[in-house]
Amino acid sequence: MGLSAAELRLQVEEQMERGRASKRAREVARIILERGACTTTDLEELGYKHPPRAVKDLKDAGIEIRTITESYVDPSTGNTKRRAKYSVVGVDASKESRRQFSKAVSDAVKASGKCEVCGALPPLQVDHRVPFDIGGETFPHVLDELMPLCPSCNRSKSWACEHCENWTLKDTDMCRACMWASPHQYDHVAGRQQREIRITLTDPRDVLRFDCLRPDATNIVIEYLRENE
């Protein structure tokens, strides 16, 4: 016989304390438990810009989530789309959530004032070089294990890591050799033998030069590399 709603809520509350769940994770858990289930569009309407990240906070804290995909009609366009639907099914008492970064740690990691991957200016976010799900974390936090990322690169890194073969292997050395952990000295990009150039131009003169070169900018770089072999 399964747990009653009240019993499940109690287990979740106890696990969130034990697992050091973040404020965001606690709020999302409350929403899902109150509604029985919650979709990505529900969370977006409540102000969560990246629902999968909010739900992942719950999983990190040891809350077991069932995810299904459903079709729905977008009221703004009338088009049929797909979205995820989440429900809480239990807890994993062995898990502990990542710890929040102190202001001192956050300020120190962001001191460069730019994203370590693409060079974008603030706002910036603090991220583990080796994903928390693979390498856990050292506490107190060690600055060398963290990196500043713009929101776009942080989302791209999450997607790349979760679709990399190492998400299952959990080889921390492989992670450290990845572009997403060491942008200036790496051997692969999420397990693929490739190299990437990510830059953000902020000087209006540079932006104008780039616009003049586009869409040939990529070919110009490739030709330059081949000419200088």
Rank of each mutant, 00 (worst) to 15 (best):
M1E: 10
G2W: 07
L3D: 14
L3I: 13
S4N: 13
A5S: 05
A5H: 10
R9Q: 06
L10Y: 07
L10P: 02
M16W: 00
R18P: 01
S22D: 01
R30T: 01
I31M: 01
I32L: 07
R35H: 11
L43N: 02
E44W: 04
E45T: 12
L46Y: 07
L46R: 08
K49L: 14
P51A: 13
A54V: 03
K56V: 00
K56R: 04
K56M: 08
D60G: 05
D60I: 03
G62R: 00
E64D: 12
I65W: 02
T69Y: 11
D74N: 09
P75L: 05
T77S: 15
G78R: 07
G78H: 10
G78W: 13
T80C: 06
T80H: 05
K81Y: 06
K81S: 08
R83S: 05
K85Y: 05
Y86C: 04
V88W: 02
G90R: 08
V91M: 02
D92W: 00
K95C: 02
S97H: 03
R99D: 01
F101M: 09
K103T: 11
V105W: 06
V105Y: 08
S106R: 12
S106M: 04
D107T: 06
V109C: 12
V109S: 12
K110R: 14
S112K: 12
G113P: 14
K114D: 08
E116S: 07
E116A: 11
V117K: 07
V117W: 14
V117S: 08
G119T: 06
A120Y: 13
P122V: 15
P123H: 15
P123G: 13
Q125H: 09
V126W: 07
R129W: 15
V130W: 03
I134G: 10
G135D: 06
G136S: 08
T138K: 04
T138N: 14
P148S: 15
P148V: 07
L149W: 05
C153S: 02
N154R: 06
R155M: 07
R155I: 12
S156H: 03
K157T: 01
S158A: 15
A160I: 01
C161W: 04
C161D: 04
C164A: 06
D171A: 02
M174C: 08
M174V: 03
M174Y: 00
R176C: 06
A177M: 11
A177Y: 00
W180L: 15
P183L: 09
Q185N: 15
Y186G: 01
D187S: 15
V189I: 08
V189K: 07
V189Q: 01
G191H: 00
G191I: 01
I197A: 03
T200R: 13
T202V: 11
T202L: 03
T202D: 13
P204R: 11
P204I: 03
D206C: 03
D206T: 01
F210W: 14
C212P: 02
C212G: 09
R214F: 14
P215Q: 07
P215A: 09
P215S: 07
T218N: 08
I220E: 10
V221G: 05
E223D: 14
N228V: 12
